[in-house]
Amino acid sequence: MAAPPTIDWSAVISDPRFQTLHRRKQGFLAGLMVFSVVFYFLLPIGAAYFQDLFRIKVWGVINVGLLFALTEFVVAWVVAFYYSRRAGSEFDRLAREIAADYERGKVAP
């Protein structure tokens, strides 16, 4: 295997494109993470402290609690899908551009 090119890592992370990637990704990930965790904990907390609400029947014998638990599944899938779409269309492209430049040894202006 050929020796890997020497890369100036400080130059990579101060590259404006990397800064853009970092900023967009960090905000997006933190937001999704906080939303998912808070939404998840609403379920056990609701089941413990809002039993009257969970009990209300909405569709035959199906109550709010059951629907809410099912929603947790849907929301988890939607978050996963939403993240992978944004990452696939935006983050990957930026990351590939940066990686290609620096792996070839070309330092962007």
């Binding site: 890997p4 890369i7 890592w9 990579v12 992370i13 990397f18 990637l21 990351a95 940066i98 990686a99």
Partner: peptide, 8 residues
């Protein structure tokens, strides 16, 4: 840099 871009 590596964890975000996958360089190398």
């Amino acid at each position: 840099a590596r964890q975000n871009t996958g360089i190398l």
